[in-house]
Design a protein around this nucleic acid. Structure first.
Length: 694
RNA sequence: GCGCCCGUAGCUCAGCUGGAUAGAGCGACUGGCUACGAACCAGUAGGUCGGGAGUUCGACUCUCUCCGGGCGCACCA
């Protein structure tokens, strides 16, 4: 609603500027005044025009205001300060329009953001190496990505959600090395030799699965947890720390073992590759389970093994050579390689560019960036090749597909998107820039412009948190503001552990409060879960993307103040009003539509807070559009919190059920209904459920 | 050495394309439950927006520089 009025005002203002001064401006600055006493909409345009028109800003503002008069939806315009133009809305009209605004995003008839024609977007997120359990850093990635998907869909876009699986990389190879060379957990009936074979590993997995069945609350037997520790052990082994310290020959031998395993996995069709496939698929399955706890689902899982075996790179290589993006280096340190110029590099014609990015090594193998270029050509439908597809995992409402060399006949279409978003942490901005540069170099300018590296900073641990968890922390690290999580060292907070902790904490809270009364005991586990997930998702979304999160259990386990549960609690309060009143929001909004003379409730000092609540509720689409334009979900998180805050304030000041004037009571109920509707909608876009009680 | 990010209240963070008296949460201190459930509300204290210069009618926001912190700059992924 607000956005509509904003656009209407802007149009009108443009008309006035054209008629009066013969001016065509490409952008009109609009802002939300800092205080309602300045109106609801403002522009400092007169300051900008002062020089051009050689007049004082205040004079210009007065002239414009005189010409603005009489715009539908607006009560009036005035000049304030040194030359601000403030607009006042027709409050009753605005409130009516907001009350009648859609309640479901699938209804595209009215208030949904529509920027140009509907875009087909592809969002890649999560993309955890399938060799260990997910940790809090991965949670930030997945929650940001999933939330952004929800925002794009709310705006009417068709979105494919992809989770890229690097199942043939060094990280998977490292765990395979661990299985092949390090001692495994003793499984009855598996000999010392057998434990290092495919058969032995299968027995170990079956054994672990049985242990998990016996006691699901002990996550240490989960396969991803097992790999978490094994991966850390392997890295120690490479450093030869737990074998023979300082033995260089042994270290070299370890490195060679690792390289051999990696090459065999990449090549495929051998026992090592089979082990890698088994291990990575099992860990991937665990990642999907973990993410599902947070209500995060995927449409497609493209794997590196298929990018290799289906020769995506070979196809891309030809195109890159044709377009001259890659060139063969004849001298210098990159002699014998195919390289590309880095973005922003300025190299004089004929000069040797030693800083160029190597895409094909002198031994003929392709680097990570090369494979990524091929994959991104596919994303935009520019490669001329496609994956095979197999169903992999069935969610309650849809199927998740995985890449395959030979897929099934019938499958959905993936790839060929118009816009892509890659949720990848800020440390990878260089390789991402290289891929964009390659697309641009090939002449795919539109695609390069619609390629968004949705970057975010890491989640680190506060030193206090690290100590709490029992890690050894050096003197030096203790002085730092935060310590980086490291999968290699097994240093970090595992996602499932954190979620378990959160659920336990919310469960204790729910029990202590006797949520829902004595008869509602059966609903409490589910409610505790909803609150825990709400707390976690909000925690990851309240920070803007480029701020490092220094993780601490104290903050993450907080349910008060600017948190998810605070917003959920506002929802529950609103619902309780309707429950106690024996009515529904829909019924009250219908009654409200018939109510006359509502302007009386919106004027005067006492009504300012109620009007402010309506006004914020009306800003839904403005916030949505801003989030998409800036790739920043934190704006919506803030919006939801402020809305909850204003509702709580309203709730406290105006006791609805004891209101004696029936017309005013209807008005107050309608206010609560709109706040409730907007809170539930905003939370759903954040991927947070609204519990019935708490 | 080069590139990117950060530095705002005791702590953790917001601050839309430069715009009106710089905001929130936590923590501290006051006060408010026989109430639509206090996971709440009201109030108080607390800031030379890292330092300096510049652009501008106007700078937390843009430019330069310095200081402090983080992360990248492989024929690793």
């Amino acid at each position: 609603m607000y956005q509509e009025l904003q656009k209407r005002f802007e149009q009108h203002l443009r008309g006035v500027l054209a008629a009066k001064y013969d001016l065509q401006l490409d952008s009109i600055p609009l802002e939300i005044p800092p205080d309602l006493k300045f109106g609801e909409l403002a522009t400092p345009i007169a300051f900008e025009l002062a020089r051009k028109l050689r007049k004082a800003p205040r004079i210009i503002a007065q002239e414009i205001v005189a010409a603005l008069a009489g715009l539908e939806g607006f009560a009036g315009f005035e000049v304030a300060g040194a030359g601000y133009i403030n607009a006042r809305l027709e409050r009753a009209e605005a409130v009516r329009s907001t009350a009648g605004s859609i309640s479901h995003p699938s209804d595209k008839s009215k208030d949904v953001v529509r920027v140009g024609h509907p875009v087909h977007s592809l969002v890649e997120h999560t993309s955890i190496n399938p060799n260990k359990a997910a940790h809090i850093g991965h949670l930030r990635n997945a929650i940001l990505g999933d939330t952004f998907v929800r925002l794009l869909r709310a705006a009417g876009q068709k979105v494919d959600v992809q989770n890229y699986i690097d199942n043939t990389g060094v990280q998977v190879a490292d765990v395979v090395v661990g299985f092949l060379h390090l001692e495994q957990s003793g499984v009855p009936g598996v000999s010392a030799e057998e434990q290092h074979t495919l058969a032995g590993i299968k027995k170990l997995m079956a054994y672990l699965a049985k242990e998990v069945d016996k006691n699901p609350s002990n996550r240490e037997n989960q396969f991803d947890y097992y790999c978490w520790y094994l991966y850390a052990r392997v890295n120690n082994w490479y450093l030869a720390l737990d074998v023979i310290e300082q033995d260089q020959a042994l270290v070299a031998k370890c490195k060679q073992i690792r390289l051999d395993v990696l090459h065999q996995i990449e090549a495929g069709n051998n026992e090592f590759a089979e082990i890698a496939e088994l291990v990575s698929t099992a860990v991937l399955q665990r990642h999907l389970d973990t993410m599902l706890r947070l209500d995060i689902e995927y449409d497609f899982l493209p794997r590196e093994s298929e990018i290799l075996h289906l020769k995506f790179w070979e196809a891309a290589f030809e195109k890159l050579k044709q377009k001259g993006v890659l060139y063969y280096e004849n001298e210098g340190k990159n002699k014998g390689c195919w390289v590309m110029t880095r973005p922003g590099a300025e190299i004089a014609e004929g000069d040797l560019n030693e800083d160029a990015k190597v895409i094909v090594r002198s031994n003929g193998t392709v680097t990570y960036v090369g494979k990524d270029i091929a994959y991104h050509l596919w994303k935009f439908g520019l490669l001329g090749k496609d994956f095979g597809y197999k169903p992999f995992f069935t969610y309650p409402k849809h199927e998740c597909w995985i890449s395959a060399e030979q897929g099934v006949e019938a499958h959905p279409q993936f790839g060929g998107a118009q816009a892509i978003y890659n949720v990848i942490d800020a440390r990878q901005s260089d390789p991402q820039a290289n891929v964009i540069q390659a697309l641009r170099g090939m002449g795919y300018t539109d695609q390069a412009n619609r390629y968004t590296h949705f970057s975010y900073e890491m989640v680190a641990l506060t030193p206090r948190c690290a100590v709490e968890l029992g890690y050894e922390v050096s003197e030096e690290d203790l002085k730092r503001p935060y310590i980086e999580v490291s999968g290699r060292k097994g240093f970090g907070v595992k996602a499932d552990d954190l979620i378990d902790k959160l659920i336990a904490a919310t469960r204790a809270e729910v029990d202590a409060r006797q949520t829902g009364g004595a008869e509602a005991e059966a609903a409490r586990p589910r409610i505790a879960e909803q609150i825990a997930i709400g707390a976690l998702r909000y925690f990851m979304l309240k920070f803007t993307r480029n701020s490092v999160i220094a993780f601490d259990f104290k903050d993450a386990l907080s349910f008060e103040g600017e948190t998810g549960p605070y917003i959920q609690y506002a929802v529950v309060r609103a619902r309780n009003i309707f429950r106690k009143a024996g009515t529904t929001p829909e019924a009250e909004l219908a009654a409200f539509a018939e109510l006359a003379g509502i302007h009386a409730y919106l004027e005067g000092d006492a009504a300012e807070d109620i009007w402010a609540l309506w006004l914020r509720a009306a800003r839904r689409t403005l916030v949505l559009e801003q989030c998409i334009a800036t790739s920043e979900p934190a704006h919506l998180a803030k919006h939801a919190f402020q809305l909850a805050q204003e509702f709580n304030n309203f709730y406290h000041k105006h006791h609805i059920l004891t209101e004696e004037d029936p017309a005013r009571k209807t008005f107050l109920l309608a206010t609560a209904a709109v706040a409730l509707r907007e809170l539930v909608l905003a939370l759903s876009w954040l991927g947070i459920e609204s519990p019935e009680a708490m």
